[in-house]
């Protein structure tokens, strides 16, 4: 399916998803409470069947913390980008997708570790790289400061 057909198809299933033609791929913007539902739909719908989560990125955007999911279907060879913003800036919380794509387990831990977004229902929400006990702050946030950062 090319991007247009994909867009139509997704729109026909769930019209609440805001679909934007991105630079390369379709970008689906969903609100945080619909994340689980949409993700499940994307994976289980026979025509879409996005079964391979390539990449899961946490972003510290100026307005909100967001997570970007790059999804591919190994059956149909099409690719979309799912984007979701966490509601709160103080305590960003999102639903986990690790029950849908297991690979998200580690990626979400990474996002939690570096950006500080907590994923609910995640089986093992701990830091993955940094020290659980004595690391303060979330390094990939824009307001994170450290004496060792070289600024130019």
């Amino acid at each position: 399916m090319n991007n247009e057909q994909l867009k139509e198809k997704i729109q026909s299933i769930d019209s609440t998803i805001n679909i934007v033609e991105g630079k390369q791929y379709l970008e689906l913007n969903v609100v945080a409470e619909n994340l689980s539902k949409t993700a499940l739909m994307l994976k289980n719908n026979a025509d879409l069947s996005f079964d391979y989560l390539i990449c899961l990125t946490g972003n510290d955007l100026p307005d909100a913390y967001s997570v970007v999911y790059h999804l591919e279907s190994t059956k149909h060879n099409h690719l979309v980008v799912l984007k979701v913003k966490a509601d709160s800036r103080e305590n960003p919380v999102l639903d986990t997708v690790s029950n849908i794509w297991i690979t998200a387990d580690f990626h979400e831990r990474e996002v939690y570790d570096l950006i500080g977004i907590t994923f609910t229902n995640h089986p093992d929400m701990r830091r993955i790289f940094l020290d659980e006990e004595d690391w303060i702050g979330y390094p990939l946030r824009k307001d994170y400061t450290d004496n060792n950062i070289i600024t130019r």
């Binding site: 991105g22 630079k23 390369q24 970008e27 390539i54 990449c55 990125t57 970007v68 790059h70 980008v81």
Partner: peptide, 19 residues
């Protein structure tokens, strides 16, 4: 230009992607 980019290549151990 402003926007999001993703590039994938096949490294020796699998798919390497840059976002």
């Amino acid at each position: 230009p402003e926007g999001e980019y993703y590039q994938r290549v096949e490294a020796a151990r699998g798919e390497f992607g840059v976002y």
